[in-house]
Computed example of a mutant assay.
Amino acid sequence: MSIPTTEILIFDTSEAFRKDSSILRPALDIVSKADGVQMPVYVGVQIENPATGYMFLNWDSREHHQAAMAAPSYANLREILKSAVTSPGKMYHVIFNDHPIALKQPVTEVLLVTLKDPSHRAEVYDIFTKFTELSKKMLVFGPTLEDENVIALLGGWESVEAHQTMVANPEPKAAIERLFTLVNKDHLFHTALTTRE
Rank of each mutant, 00 (worst) to 15 (best):
H64L: 01
A75Y: 05
Y54D: 09
I80K: 00
A75R: 14
P50L: 03
Y74A: 09
M55P: 00
N58C: 05
L77S: 04
E63Y: 09
N58E: 11
M55H: 04
G53A: 06
A67G: 01
A68M: 13
S61W: 02
S73G: 05
I80C: 01
R78S: 10
A68I: 06
I80L: 07
A84Y: 03
P72C: 08
V85A: 08
R78P: 07
M69E: 12
M55N: 04
Y54F: 11
N58A: 13
M69C: 02
S83K: 15
T52H: 07
A68S: 10
S61R: 03
P72Q: 09
R62S: 14
K82A: 09
A70D: 13
V85S: 09
A68N: 10
A67H: 08
P50I: 07
M69L: 08
N58T: 04
K82I: 03
W59V: 06
A70M: 09
H64M: 12
G53D: 08
V85M: 14
M69G: 01
W59S: 07
G53E: 08
M69V: 10
A67D: 14
A84W: 02
T52V: 14
N58S: 12
A71I: 00
H64T: 15
V85E: 05
A51N: 11
S83C: 07
D60V: 13
E63R: 05
D60P: 08
S83R: 13
S83M: 08
W59R: 04
A68T: 07
R62H: 15
A67V: 08
D60R: 13
K82D: 09
P72G: 11
V85K: 15
K82F: 01
R62C: 13
L57G: 12
A68E: 07
A71P: 00
A75H: 14
M55W: 02
A71Y: 00
A75I: 11
H65G: 04
N58M: 10
P50D: 05
V85L: 11
I80Y: 00
P72Y: 05
W59Q: 04
Y74C: 09
S83H: 12
T52L: 07
A75T: 15
L77I: 04
F56K: 04
N58Y: 00
A68G: 03
G53W: 02
K82Y: 02
N58D: 12
